[in-house]
Structure formats: structure tokens, C-alpha cells
Amino acid sequence: MPDLAAGLAHPWLQNALCGAAIVAVVAAIVGTFVVMRGASFATHALSQIGFAGAAGAVYAGVPPAFGLIAFSLLGAFGLGALSLRSRSSDVPTALVLVASLGTGALFLALTDDFGSDVTSFLFGTIVGVARAQVAVTFVAALCALAVLAVIARPLLFATVARDAARSAGVDVAALDVVFLVVVGLAAAITVPIVGALLVFALTIGPAAAASRLCTRPAAAFALAIVLGLIAAGCGVALAYETDWPVGFFISAIALLEYVVARAIR
């Protein structure tokens, strides 16, 4: 069995751990709002939209990060616009989701090299995370967190008391869309490491567990970050040791955290 401590000397493993830690923090903070708003499905959909973008970028021969971020933002606006005037966002979410998966399938079929490059976006990989990618991840994470910090208070208000917030002058419809954009951005940076199909394990697992255990908002955010870092760190380490997909470990640890939280309270 390869030794993790020795492996830490490899720059690519350092990069993977850095990237995973960044996305874990962002996912935990965004996820706490996602859980409160009951928006797991939209989160799931936005990460798969990112997959279509990544597949498209690979086909076009541009860096996948551009496709990921462009498609996720576009998807967030589209989802927001479609959900705006419908009773529930369930149906638009499902259809936008499958449309992007279908588009991803198309790019997958058109890309000559039928290899692991694109499918690794579905299931995640810790191999080949470049230093530059960590930098992009870091900048995008800062953007997402900055937007979230600005809208945090009205977003919380609109989430728990929508009518009262509206009467206090909060533009709840605009907040809905901006929040989806933040979710899209967070999903876009999480996809390359965790995989499009598994992003929301890292997004809602730690957050749902923390929400269940904490009664104060600040504590819930803090605990979610800690649980997220544990899931991401252990996931990368176990993937390194076993050579199994990192998404499997992260989703298993996230589910375990939630189950334990439910058992405690």
C-alpha cells in the first residue's frame, strides 16, 4: 500500500488536497443555504449542467474550466427564469437537468477520444489537478463567497420568512436567481474534483448534518465547514490509497455524517 505521508511529497496530491479543501469550504457554506431552502434538486441539476459544459470544452479544445463556469452560470439564469413564474421549480429543474445531460452525451459522442477525460467529470478524479486549476478554483471560490457574503442577510430573511421579507423591501425573486448563480459557480469548481454526479453529496451532506445538530446559524456554518473538510480530506486520502474513485468515498462519508447526525438528534 502506498504511504500517504510519502505521497504528500507529490505536487499533484498537494494540488488535489488544496483543491478539495477549497471546494469543501464553499460547498459547506452554499450547502447550508441549499438545505434551508430545500434546493437540493437544483444543486444536483446545476452540477450536471457543468458536466455538459466541461464535455463541450473538451470537444472544442478549450480548458474545461471555461466550459464548466460558462454553462453553470448560464444554467443558473435559465433555471431561475423558468422557475420564476411556475408553482414549483421541480419540473423545470428536471428538464433543464436532462437537457444538459443530453448535451453532455452529445459532446461525449463527438469527442473522438472516448476516454476517461470526459467521464472523469462525471465521477471526479484526484489525478492531474494542476497548480493553475487550483488557482482558478481559489479565485472562483472567493467570488462565490463574496457574493454570498453580500446577500447573506436578506437571503436568510427571504428563506425563513418570505412574505415578511418582501414587505420589508427585499427583492425575493432577484435573490432566488442570484442564489442559483452562486450555487452554479460553486458547482462549477467542485465538478472537476468530485465529479458532476457527486457534487451535491459534498454540498448537502455536511450542511444537512450540521443544520440538524446546531441551533445557531453561525455554528451551523462552522460545523458544516469542518464536516466538509473531513469528507474531502478523507476522500482524497482514501482515493490515493485505494485508487478507487474519489467521488465514491466523499459521497459515502457525507451520507455517513448525515446518518450519524440524525442518530444523535
Partner: peptide, 21 residues
């Protein structure tokens, strides 16, 4: 399970409409 105490919920009435943390 919403992670809010009663006082956190009420506090939103003070400045919940303002941007920022």
C-alpha cells in the same frame, strides 16, 4: 431543523433586508 433560534428569527426583522453578514 432550520438552524435558527427564536431570537435569530426575530433579529431578521431588525436588519434582515440589508446586504451583508
Amino acid at each position: 431543523d432550520v438552524p435558527l433560534r427564536a431570537r435569530d428569527f426575530v433579529a431578521l426583522g431588525v436588519d434582515g433586508a440589508k446586504f451583508g453578514i
